[in-house]
């Protein structure tokens, strides 16, 4: 079963892509690591970012976590709050 997830963008990732969310096709059993590979392939501009983490439903996710189309997914570039 193929579907599409929306990936929220913030900070530099939004500026580099010119978008505030990306539509990324995922297959069943797509993992966080696979999503990151796909995002980097589709948006080579993101290579300049020092590190990219993924949040799933508002929590930092490990690379082997499996994604579903119901998840709220976000790319987290290096934070600079405080």
């Amino acid at each position: 079963m193929n579907s599409t997830v929306s990936v929220l963008l913030f900070g530099i990732t939004r500026d580099l892509t010119g978008q505030s969310a990306l539509s990324i096709p995922i297959q069943t059993e797509t993992r966080v690591g696979d999503l990151l590979d796909q995002v980097r392939q589709q948006y080579p501009a993101l290579a300049g970012v020092r590190s990219l983490l993924v949040a799933v439903n508002g929590e930092y996710a490990e690379v082997d976590q499996t994604l579903t189309s119901k998840d709220e997914i976000a790319l987290i570039p290096p934070v600079s709050g405080g």
Binding site: G11, V49, R50, P77, P78, S80, G81
Partner: peptide
């Protein structure tokens, strides 16, 4: 907070802008 909280800061100059911490 400075390590984990998803907040981002952009410095804006008269001639450009930079996201703090983002680049290597």
């Amino acid at each position: 907070i400075k390590q984990t909280v998803p907040i981002w800061k952009k410095e804006i100059f008269t001639d450009g802008e930079v996201w703090v911490n983002a680049h290597p």
